[in-house]
Amino acid sequence: MHDVLIGAKILSKNEEIAQRTRKEFNQRGIFSINLVSSPGSGKTSIVEKTVERLKDRIKIAVIAGDIQTDLDSKRLKKYAIPVKQITTGRACHLDALMVRRVVPWLFVQGGVELLIIENVGNMVCPAEYDLGEDMKVAVMSVTEGDDKPLKYPSLFHASRLLLINKTDLLGYTDFSVDRACENALKINPALRVFETSCVTGAGLDTWCDHLEEMVECQATIDGQ
C-alpha cells in the first residue's frame, strides 16, 4: 500500500472550462454577470427592467437557468433580444459546461456587449461554480430578512455587487437596509450595494448606469 500525491482542485474541470469561456468572452468584448439569489427574490424582474432600460444603449443577451420550464425566457421574449433558456433537469445550479454548450449560440448573435446569466434560484450551490462570468451579482429581497448575508455567507463572499430588491415592501416588514448592508459588508467589505424596486422603479437607473459603465470599462480594457 502506498500514498500517491494528487494535488488537484476538485472542480478543476469546471474551472478550466470557465476560464476558457471567460477568455473568449473578453476577446469578443462581452461583459458578463452571473445573477444569483434564492428563488423568488426578483431576478427575472431585475433582468426585465435592466433590459428595458439598457437595450437601446448596449446589445444584451440573456441566458436563463431553471430546473424546469422555459417560463423565464418566455417573459423576456417581448424585448426582442437574444435569450437562451438552460433547463438543468434536476441540478440546483448552472455549471461551466452548461454555459459552454450555449456559447456558439451566443457568438452567432453578433456584437453582444452584455451577457446576463440568470442562475437557478438557489443561494448555496451556484456560489461554488464559476461559469466564466466577469462577476457574480447577488440579489436578496426585503421579504427575505436582513440577516440573509450572515445565514448564506458564501454567496455574499463570492459576489462583487449586491442588489437589495423589493424596497417598495420596506414599510410592510421590519427589514432594515442599514442592517442588511452592515451584515453583507461584514462578510465582504468590497461588496457594492444597490437598492432596487422593480415595482416603483426606484434605484434601477443607478444600477443600470453602473452596469453600463462596467460594460464600457470592460470594452476599453479588451480594446487595449
Binding site: 500500500m1 500514498d3 500517491v4 500525491l5 494528487i6 494535488g7 488537484a8 482542485k9 476538485i10 461554488e128
Partner: peptide, 10 residues
C-alpha cells in the same frame, strides 16, 4: 480549498 490531496492505493 476544495482539493484532492492524495490517495492511498494497493
Amino acid at each position: 480549498e476544495l482539493d484532492i490531496v492524495s490517495m492511498e492505493v494497493v
